[in-house]
Simulated assay, not measured.
Amino acid sequence: MTPPVEVRPAESAGRRALWLAVAAAVMTLLLPLAGIVMAIFALATSIRAIGTLRAIPKPAGTAVVGVVLSATALLISIAVTSLQFYFGDELAAYTECGRGAGTVAAQNQCVEQLERAMEKKLPFLEPGQVRFPFPP
């Protein structure tokens, strides 16, 4: 019987950074505001892992992928969260309208109201330019 393989914390730093970056990307898709926090934590862990892995003669590829993935998740979550805050009133009105819409025609009217409200908030768009391919 072979003894269990002992993994030193410094050698597993790259994998840990990559897993945290993946968790940050998933969290960005589910809850963008929580994705910001998780992505910052994953980014800091990934940067520390690069230094740790370079201190010992180990490749830092997984930690570099962790940096790239967590930085991408951070940018996406910041963008989505800022859009949610910017269009907060319009999205709340759409939610209320959707609760009372019992037919498909009423739901389509709610989508059209959301489109018009977003066009008013974005002055560089022409009327009728915002079209959702599917209900938000």
Rank of each mutant, 00 (worst) to 15 (best):
A63Y: 01
I56G: 04
A79Y: 15
P59M: 03
T52P: 00
A17E: 00
Y94A: 06
V37H: 08
A92V: 12
A34P: 04
L69T: 12
A60S: 11
I47Y: 02
R54E: 14
I76P: 03
L83C: 11
A39G: 02
L43S: 01
T95V: 12
A49Q: 04
G61M: 08
G14N: 02
Q84M: 13
L20D: 04
M27E: 15
A79W: 13
A24T: 07
G14C: 03
L69F: 11
V80C: 03
S82D: 14
Q84W: 12
T72L: 15
I36N: 06
L18F: 05
P57G: 10
G88P: 02
A49E: 03
A93C: 04
T103V: 09
W19L: 13
C97D: 06
A21P: 02
V65W: 07
A34K: 06
A44W: 08
A34L: 15
G98A: 15
A42V: 07
L83S: 13
T103K: 09
T95F: 09
L20E: 07
T62C: 10
G35W: 06
L20G: 11
F41I: 14
C97P: 07
C97Y: 04
V37L: 08
G88L: 15
L83R: 09
L18N: 00
L30H: 08
L53V: 00
L18Y: 02
I78K: 05
A21G: 02
L29I: 05
F41Y: 07
T103A: 11
G35D: 03
A49G: 03
I50H: 02
T62D: 12
V64G: 04
P59E: 08
V37Y: 07
T103Q: 11
A17N: 00
S77E: 05
E96Q: 13
G14A: 13
L33H: 09
